[in-house]
């Protein structure tokens, strides 16, 4: 069953078509990878889905209903949560309060503070940051920052999570742990749409991979098919 899909999604920045009419679709319970060279338009697609940007044309639907042009807070409340490529943390606030903002405001129903606190703790435990609850977010290292980003998104109890390069800047051990974490997220029944530069990670995990190049969809298919795709190999060798 389709949970999130885009049709002819386009975003122009001045003369540049950062996203040039892309179709995509995430089915319930899938992990879909979004890959492509730097500047291909991957983050822009996430910005369009999450409402940070309005598409120049095209439609984005969530559970069959159009969410095109909705504001970020509305899209979050509907059940689409995201992380940011460069962590956008509330630097001076504690780790737990960072998550609390998401669990308190991110759901469609009003959540009592006590419940939201419990959910924030659960989300932190889930990503393995329980011990850092009372630290200010700015004191976290890169790996922990990425985990905090994920915990915040999870605290909204989303149906779909958009992960923007959560493995960038991590060492190999941390990458392995991040892969494990994403599998656990998927185990919770959350559909995952992930941008990743670390090819190995996407290839090992995704049900399907979409390759973006200069704002256009270059290829789409199973990881095996993508790995063998001549156009994709050329783009990546040429990088």
């Amino acid at each position: 069953m389709r949970i999130l899909d885009g049709e002819g999604v386009r975003k122009n920045f001045g003369g540049l078509a950062a996203v040039a009419g892309v179709d995509f679709c995430i089915n319930q319970g899938e992990i879909v990878g979004l890959i492509g060279p730097n500047g291909a338009g991957k983050t822009t697609i996430f910005n369009l889905i999450s409402g940070a940007l309005n598409p120049s044309s095209g439609q984005i639907r969530f559970n069959g209903e159009s969410i095109t042009g909705l504001k970020p807070y509305q899209i979050c409340k509907r059940g689409v949560a995201r992380t940011f490529q460069s962590a956008k943390l509330f630097a001076d606030m504690t780790v737990i309060n960072n998550v609390l903002v998401w669990s308190l405001f991110g759901k469609s129903a009003r959540t009592p503070v006590a419940d939201a606190e419990m959910e924030a703790r659960e989300a932190l435990a889930f990503v393995g940051l329980s011990e850092k609850e009372e630290l200010p977010a700015k004191d976290l290292g890169i790996a922990a920052q990425k985990r905090l980003e994920i915990a915040r998104a999870l605290a909204t109890k989303p149906q779909v999570i958009l992960l923007d390069e959560v493995m960038a800047g991590l060492n190999p051990t941390e990458v392995t742990q991040a892969i494990e974490l994403i599998k656990q997220i998927w185990n919770k029944g959350i559909s995952v749409f992930m941008i990743e530069h670390v090819m190995k990670a996407v290839m090992g995990m995704a049900d399907r991979v979409i390759v973006l190049h200069h704002g256009e969809k270059l290829a789409e298919g199973t990881p095996e098919a993508i790995a063998k795709n001549r156009k994709v190999v050329e783009v990546y060798l040429g990088e």
Binding site: S50, A52, P72, Y73, M93, V101, F105, T156
Partner: peptide, 24 residues
């Protein structure tokens, strides 16, 4: 109140606050 927490999060990082479900 929760209202105060939302205001604080706007001051910390408005774009993130907007994506947390706050009508900034």
């Amino acid at each position: 109140s929760r209202f105060g927490l939302a205001l604080q999060s706007i001051g910390q990082f408005e774009e993130a606050a907007a994506h947390a479900g706050i009508n900034v």
